[in-house]
Design a protein around this nucleic acid. Sequence first.
DNA 1: GGCACGTCTGAATCTGGAT
DNA 2: AATCCAGATTCAGACGTGC
Lengths: 360, 360
Amino acid sequence: MGLSLQTDQILVGDCIDVMRELPPASVHAVVADPPYNLQLRGDLRRPDDSLVDGVDAAWDRFADFAAYDAFTRAWLTEARRVLRKDGTIWVMGAYHNVFRLGAALQDLGFWILNDVIWRKSNPMPNFRGRRFTNAHETLIWAARGEESRYRFNYAAMKALNDDLQMRSDWLIPLCTGGERLRDAAGRKLHPTQKPEALLHRVLLSCTAPGEVVLDPFLGSGTTAAVARRLGRRFIGIEREAPYAEAAQARVDAVEPLPEGATLVTVQKRDQPRVPFGTLVERGLVPAGSPLFDRARRWRAMVGADGSIRCGRVQGSIHQVGAAVQDAPSCNGWVFWHVEAPGGRLRVLDELRADIVAQGV
Amino acid sequence: MGLSLQTDQILVGDCIDVMRELPPASVHAVVADPPYNLQLRGDLRRPDDSLVDGVDAAWDRFADFAAYDAFTRAWLTEARRVLRKDGTIWVMGAYHNVFRLGAALQDLGFWILNDVIWRKSNPMPNFRGRRFTNAHETLIWAARGEESRYRFNYAAMKALNDDLQMRSDWLIPLCTGGERLRDAAGRKLHPTQKPEALLHRVLLSCTAPGEVVLDPFLGSGTTAAVARRLGRRFIGIEREAPYAEAAQARVDAVEPLPEGATLVTVQKRDQPRVPFGTLVERGLVPAGSPLFDRARRWRAMVGADGSIRCGRVQGSIHQVGAAVQDAPSCNGWVFWHVEAPGGRLRVLDELRADIVAQGV
DNA sequence: GGCACGTCTGAATCTGGAT
DNA sequence: AATCCAGATTCAGACGTGC
């Protein structure tokens, strides 16, 4: 292949083999969403008995951690060779694999700059109630080495965040609806298609227009599509021909933004919801303390988990408020009060307002 | 030391040595905030040239990743020996070290349940503008092994979050103000003191009152203080005598919550099991009476032994409910109803709740 | 058209006590 | 240790249907 670098194309093949053919130090950024090695076992059903369509593709199966580590180190080694000295890499993962990825990055000489949390606004719940809802994935951002003079578009990221420094936790919805690629039968084409908003922020943060982005696990082509829209060049590698074809069609349909376009879409930051439990955890309403209604007709005891108890009734501030009044519903925030020094009653809603005012 | 387990004390010494003296399978939870292996080079200054008081204590320096990994595997091995078979471990870290921690946990046989993100509501900004604001830390929650029947207080976590499943991202402020321990000169006593709200949620999620929590890196004593407040027992280990002393004083000042406040919301799984036959025996659902589904689509007849029959199908309330719906399984308690006076339907689960409330 | 309501789905390591 | 089977368990958002 030689020294020239063909960009804006999708190469079909194993990413390690294909990267070996690319010239060294030739790309400005690598964005990789490798297999997660999920290790799913039996079927999982929702409470309504519908079946969850899990990831069971052959490409996500590995014999053990050693096999996964060997694979990881092999492709990361090639990615590092291809990356320019001042380039950076993004690697995505979840708790199944991200610790292997991060350790491998460090062992190979990459220099971690941030771990970024993609907080999903609409994750799948935990249907069996046996763990916390797995509501995020992790992206590791690393420079090629400790001394790299990497690019970080600080001002663009700040602008994207209402003129506050962009934090390491990003709230972005899943890829659903019209953005999700589907086959003729209406089934999702790829089990793990990433939202374009995520890649938008990634590429905008660390590349300049015209620079080259390599994605060794292109899949449904989100990285390539966003790169093209943002005026970046791309090289996509994908092993499965059907994915590569769909990605190509997707990219072909993308209209690049005009050069001077404002790439920044300012997002409205929404008012945070504050659970009553937060006031308990933070000691504003200590566990064990009493709550009263305005007339002190009822008295309830606060539990450590934010539930309250009044006589034999236990539940949320709303549930117990409704029960004692024998009402169909009740807004516990305005019904219950704490006793402030001096015996004065203070309604819970005031305490909540304080917490919101302090930025939660 | 032998077989007895002294709790509610702080042991001064190297945690690996001290854990070796503890009996195996003796603690219900391990909570560890190990040294982070921060690789700070030189001083860090704010834009106004003031010096940032970073972590540079000797206990946080390791020669290289290999040394840090060896240390990590050594203490995790002892922690795993001391942990009960059905216990869980929490390990905290940031991007400098958390990937080493996670990989070591997996390599030693722990089974990761969640990675939890502590989102800081008030993180330190990135003064140089060269990275994203590092606004979170990671907590890895893991069972001792893949087959462990660990405890997760699902209902308590849900209660704490306004009756929505608790997610894997937690928004909690840094430890500041009055909660932060300070020395006589007003300097912070410990560089990485964790907020009590964080440990409150951790301990509430995976332990019951009276159970034993081990913290091998006690530091300023947050784990012990919160454990005591929540009616859990603790074992704290700390190498540095000044920290251990301050932690002891801190714990001594903690007033445990009254018992009723530490008992978290009771989960259905933990309630005493009542066979359907009990309702029949007691005449709440007389033998020979009919059961209906919510829409009165099916009608079943109750047998004297607690079995029911619907057409040609006979079996438990669950089996018959599943069979008539052609479903893989069915919770008969919420599927079947009795007819109350006036023709109103009452779900079996309500009748069961009455019995449970009366002490079975 | 607009609103109310029902249906479907998403990188998922998803039960536990008795025998 | 393996087996059996009772019975516990879901949130946000997109989309379609019907009034």
